[in-house]
Design a binder for these strands. Structure first.
Lengths: 312, 312
DNA sequence: TATATTTACATAAGCACTTATATAATTACT
DNA sequence: AGTAATTATATAAGTGCTTATGTAAATATA
């Protein structure tokens, strides 16, 4: 027995509200499952701010079609979450200029595949012909209630978040530089020679016969690694870097496995330089079959105090 | 610029909520316009209680598919409005038996044409094929925002509430009795002879060549009037009564106009007995052309102190 | 038969909105 | 130029839901 459903067109308002609640709840669960700290109610406002670049309370009020206090309240929530920043306008002190914070921009990049997954799932269950609005609502409600929608959302998000290892591509040139300098800055410091090599991958890595790979989520590079030719079939595994907000997704290991497969296929012998400070990295190297060998006196990296090679 | 709309499937939750709010607001306006003191949010619960006859908190919880506290809160609102009554169950003191109050039943009868109008309007704008849920929502939102929905709802409600004057019909026999005794009880008292005549309209009015008319809203009689044959072409206008909760809808005047038209067509001369206490009634009689004439000594009604006839 | 568990309903607090109103800063008007 | 009107945003209080928890009555269990 379902009164609201059986009333059909007569309780359209309650019906829409109930469906909205169910929809929001499902989306919230999907966010949680993928460790996205976000609230579905904030989405339209956040998306709008991200799209406009810089906006104001009044502008959001205009495009969100809610009440002006609702906009103020939403802005406050986004501020509290640290996803946006606001400042009083210089020319008009009544206005507040709202922009995404660094955290907000980072979040936006991170959440994009999740949103793509959600959109695809909603479309799957709602983009089909029906003879009335109620019929559409009935259909959608069934998949929301049965858990089928949630299952599909999660599947689609997983697909969208899937990491693919790709060859070097020009679109990722800047990422190659950024990903590497980021961790260098964290653990050591970026030398001029690093900058030179990282900004000219063609000259220093690809043209001499080496390879660069990226771990990409959609069109976003989350990690990289390079194989630099040392001699005829000896290659140095280097320039491995993973984006900080992609930690825990085993991207380093996927890149490593790809290099190993690639090396085996082409009959390459691999070696690498590292530093004992980087315990996690070295742990992974060992796990994948690298063993420590003596560092030669003329080691090219000042920061390296350990050399390893792949035991075949 | 409409962010939520342009996001399409991606902001389905917010979209449904916004539409629900718009829908509820429109319905609320329609209620107000027709002087129905009701809240669209209460509708599913109220309808359920009316349909089940007697129910409990738990039963409503089951069929409304909301949270149990929401049911309690809704029940409290309905109690506050006096539309329902609740009592602790005799066999299980935890339970609360909920039934419509007299006011609730009366309201239910009164609101029925309004609901029919609302349902027809929603169906008009949502019962058509579309290729996706979003398309349906877009279409419905347009008519909600433009005011077209509201206009149609009001029109349809007006049609559903329209009063039609009908000949005597057996289905309204009890209404003929009830409508008349109700006002007699209010102003005077019901005599045995009243009961006799009102319960046997065939014997006392129709068979002697008289007529009975009803003012009906759908299948509900809201008012009645009779023309009793006094002599060959002289008829007494009598038994005029209008339901209390239909006051202000000019039902008395419609019945009166019908009698005048009918009398003219059949070349009847009309007269009536009344009481000067009934100021409003006498005002209307005068307005429609009745003028006071002397009451004969053998006046058949004890309660009448005034006699009027139609100046042709 | 006494205690634990379950059931039916109520209460409290929170959330995302709403309307009504306040508070500044800016613009219009005479 | 000084006051009034308008604009941009904030605050307060209310609404209809939610989840979490409380309370009393009925039922199960030992």
């Amino acid at each position: 027995m379902d009164t609201i459903k059986s009333l059909g067109e007569l309780s359209m308002g309650s019906r829409l509200k109930r469906l909205s609640d169910m929809c929001m709840k499902n989306i919230q669960i999907a966010y949680n499952k993928h460790h996205i700290d976000f609230d579905p109610y904030l989405f339209p406002a956040f998306h709008n701010i991200a799209n406009l670049g810089s906006t104001t309370n009044a502008e959001l009020f205009e495009s969100l079609k809610t009440s002006q206090p609702a906009v103020t309240q939403t802005i406050n929530k986004l501020l509290k979450k640290g996803l946006i920043e606001s400042a009083t306008d210089v020319t008009d002190k009544r206005k507040k200029t709202i922009v995404l914070s660094e955290k907000g921009k980072e979040f936006h990049r991170k959440a994009r595949p999740v949103w793509r997954g959600m959109e695809r799932a909603v479309k799957k269950f709602t983009q089909h012909p029906a003879n009335s609005l109620i019929e559409h609502l009935n259909n959608f409600e069934v998949v929301l209630q049965s858990g089928e929608f949630l299952k599909t959302v999660n599947e689609y998000i997983d697909v969208e978040m899937q990491i693919k290892i790709t060859e070097y591509q020009e679109a990722f040139k800047q990422d190659f530089y950024d990903l590497n300098t980021e961790w260098l800055e964290t653990f050591f410091y970026v030398e001029d020679f690093d900058r030179e090599v990282l900004s000219k991958p063609h000259k220093y890595i690809l043209e001499p016969g080496g390879h660069i790979f990226f771990a990409a989520e959609g069109n976003r590079a989350l990690g990289t690694v390079a194989l630099m030719k040392a001699s005829e079939n000896k290659y140095e595994l280097t320039k491995m870097a993973v984006h900080t907000d992609a930690r825990g997704r085993k991207i380093g290991q996927q890149l490593m496995q790809h290099c190993l497969d690639f090396a085996k296929e082409h009959n390459y012998e691999l070696f690498l330089y590292s530093n004992t400070l980087l315990e996690n990295a070295i742990h992974i190297y060992r796990k994948y079959g690298f063993v420590e060998i003596p560092v030669e006196p003329d080691c090219p990296y000042v920061r390296s105090n350990i050399k390893m090679e792949l035991r075949r």
